[in-house]
Design a protein around this nucleic acid. Sequence first.
DNA 1: TATGAATGAGATTTCATTCAT
DNA 2: CATGAATGAAATCTCATTCAT
Lengths: 208, 208, 208, 208
Amino acid sequence: MGDELETREKLLESAMAEFSENGYMKASLRKICADAGVTTGALYFFFKNKNDLFKAIVDEPLKELCKLLTEHYMQDAQDMDSDDPAVLSAEYHIDTHTDLDKLVEYMYLHYDVFMLLLTGAQGSEYENTVDMIVDMTEQGFRISAEKAAAKMPNCHVDEYMLHWITHISVDAYTHLLTHERDVEKAKLHMRRVMEFLIKIWFTMIVED
Amino acid sequence: MGDELETREKLLESAMAEFSENGYMKASLRKICADAGVTTGALYFFFKNKNDLFKAIVDEPLKELCKLLTEHYMQDAQDMDSDDPAVLSAEYHIDTHTDLDKLVEYMYLHYDVFMLLLTGAQGSEYENTVDMIVDMTEQGFRISAEKAAAKMPNCHVDEYMLHWITHISVDAYTHLLTHERDVEKAKLHMRRVMEFLIKIWFTMIVED
Amino acid sequence: MGDELETREKLLESAMAEFSENGYMKASLRKICADAGVTTGALYFFFKNKNDLFKAIVDEPLKELCKLLTEHYMQDAQDMDSDDPAVLSAEYHIDTHTDLDKLVEYMYLHYDVFMLLLTGAQGSEYENTVDMIVDMTEQGFRISAEKAAAKMPNCHVDEYMLHWITHISVDAYTHLLTHERDVEKAKLHMRRVMEFLIKIWFTMIVED
Amino acid sequence: MGDELETREKLLESAMAEFSENGYMKASLRKICADAGVTTGALYFFFKNKNDLFKAIVDEPLKELCKLLTEHYMQDAQDMDSDDPAVLSAEYHIDTHTDLDKLVEYMYLHYDVFMLLLTGAQGSEYENTVDMIVDMTEQGFRISAEKAAAKMPNCHVDEYMLHWITHISVDAYTHLLTHERDVEKAKLHMRRVMEFLIKIWFTMIVED
DNA sequence: TATGAATGAGATTTCATTCAT
DNA sequence: CATGAATGAAATCTCATTCAT
C-alpha cells in the first residue's frame, strides 16, 4: 500500500532536484530515474515524457499563482470604479496592496518550484511562463489604468510605460526569490519595492 | 580575393542565425555548417569549439559595451564630488544622463548580438553576462550612492534597494531590446524610463 | 530466456575479436556493435565506455593471475626461511617451482585475454599491466633474494640484475604465449626456461 | 640558404618530441606542425605522410644498427669455424663479445630514436622492428649454434630455447635503454648481462 | 616552399524514448 | 507497476590528408 505513490513521489523528488540543479534542458532522465532507484520504464509509466514530468512538478502551483493574480487584478480594477478620488493617489493603493503578502507567502511556500519555473524552464513548454504572467498582469494593469485615465482629463495610457512597469512589477518577484530566501524578510522587501512601483504606476498615464 | 574571409563569415552568419533561433545549447553545429555550405571540419579550422564560435560573435561588442558602461559610471561618480547641491536632485541627473543615448545606439548597432547575449547565451561561458553587468553597475551605483548619502545627514544606502534598482536599471535595456526594434523609438522610451529610474534611485538612500 | 545474456555476451565476443585484431586504441566501437548486431546505444547500456568494455574482458582473469602470483611469491619467501642449506641451491628451487605449471595452465585457459592484455592494451588503463606485474614480481624476488643474501657472508643484491632478471622472468610468459599455442608444449618449454632463470637468479647476489 | 633545411629539420625535431611523448598513433601532425611553426602543407611537401615522417626519423639509425648486428653475427659465425676447442666455452665468447660495447654506444648516441623505435612505433610500419631484429639475431644465433652443435656428438639445437634466448638477448637492449640513461653505466650493465646470456646460450644445444 | 582552407570520414558518447515481458 | 534492453538519431570534436594558390 502506498507503494504506488511512493515511486511516483520519489521520481518527482529526484526530478525536482535534477531540474533545479541543471535546468530542464540539461537535466537527464536517466539520472532522475537512478536517483529515484527505478528504471526509465517506471518513469514512462507515470509520465508521458520529459515535459510531462516537468509539468507534474510545476503546473499546480503555477495555476494557483495565476488564480491569485487574477483575483488581485480583478479586485484592483473594481476598486478603480469607486467614486472616492483617493483611488487616484499612490497612498490608497499602497494600503490596499497588502494582499500581495499572500502572493509572496504562496511563492515561498513553493519556493523551489517557482525558482525552477522562473530560472530553469528553458526548453520546456513553460519557458515562456514569465511572459505569460506579464501578459496577464498587463491586461489587469491596462484595465485599471484606463479606468484611472478616464477620470483624468486629456489623459491616456502610454503603451511602452505600461509594458515596462508591468515587466518590472512581475520581475520584482523573480528578483525577490533569487535574492532572499527568508519569507519574512522577503515580505518586507516587497512592501518597499511595491511602494515605488505604485508611485511609478501612475506615470504611465500621460497627457495627450 | 575575399574568398579567404567568405567561409569564416558565412559560418559566423549561419551561427548567428542558429544561435538566435535556438539559443546556444540547442544550436546544432551540424546545421550551422550545413547552412554555411561547409563541413564540420571547416568550422574547426576557424574556431576551437562551439563556445569559441559563440565568443567570436559576441565578445567584441560585449567588451565595447562594458567600456561604455564603465566610462559612464566613472563620470557619474565624479559628478557626485561636485559641491553643487543640485547633484542630489533627480533633475540634475536626468539632464546629465543624455549620454546613455550612445549606449542605446551602440546596442542597436549590434542588435542581434545583444539579443543573443541577453536571451540565448545559456550553456555558454556568457550565460552570466547579465549578472556580470549588474555587478559592474552595482559597484558604480554604490560608489555614487555612498557619496550622495555622505552629503545627507543620518542617511545610508539600503542594500536590497540598491540591488533591485541596479537590477531593473540593467533589465531596462533587455526589455527595450526585446520590445522595440526601432532605435529612435528606443531612445525615446529609454529616456522616459531613465527619468523614473533616476527618481527611484534616490529612494535607496534611507534614514538610519 | 538466455536472451538477456546474449547481447552482452555477443558484444564481449566481438569486442574481444576487434581488440585482439587492432589493439585497444585502433579498435572501433562502431565495428564491435555492428559485428554484435546491435546499435552503439546498446553497448552503452552494458558498459560505461570503451575502457569499461575492455575491463569487462580482462579484469577478472588479471585479478586471478595476480592472486596466483602473490601466493607463489609468498610461498617462495617463506621457503627461504628454512634452515636447510639446500634453499641456496638452484636444484631445490627447480623442484619446488613445479607449481608454476598452474600459472601456465591458467594463462592458457584464458589465452586470448592474456594475449590481449600483454600485446593490445595500449591506450587503456591496462597499458601498464606488464610493468605492474614486473613490480609485484620484483618485490617478491627482492624479499627472497635478501633472505638468501643474508645467509651468504659479505653478499648483497645487485639492483640492476634484480631488475633485469625480474623482467625476463615475467617476459618469459609473454614470450611463451606469443610463440606456443599448445598448453602442454608450453608447460614443457616453461620448465626448461625456468630452470635457467633459477640458475641466473642466484647471480643477482654478488659479493660486496 | 639553409632555410630549406631549417623547416625540414624543425619538423623532424618537433616530430621527434611529439612521437616520443605520445607514440606514433596518438601523435598529432597538427601539433607537430604547430610546434615547428609551419602549416600542414609544409609537412606534406617534405614528407609523403605520417609514416614517412616517422621513417625519416628512425630509418637511418635502424639501418646502421642492423649493419652492426649483421657484422657481429657474421664474425661470430666465422669464429665458430676455428679449430680451437675454446670456441665451445663461454669464457671465450665473453672475451670476444667486447665489440658489443660499440653497439651500446651507437644506441646511446641515438638514444631518443631507439627509445622511440622500441617503445612508440605501434601503428607505424616499424611496429614490428623488434621482431625483425629478433629474426635477424635468430638467424645469426642458429648458424653459430649449429656449427657448435656439429662439434659436439649427438647434439642439436633446441628450437624453443633458441627462440627464447634470442628474444631475451635482444630484449636486454630494450631493457637497458629504458632503465639506464648513462652510457658508461649501461656498458657495465650490459657486460654483466651478456656474461649470463652467453652462459645460457650453450644450453640451447641439447643432446638428441 | 609553404600557406590556408577545406574535406570527409571517423571517433566516442549521450539522450529521450519505446516496448516486450 | 516496473524492469531491462535496445533503438536511433544526434551531439561535439579530431584527424590525416589534399590542393589551389
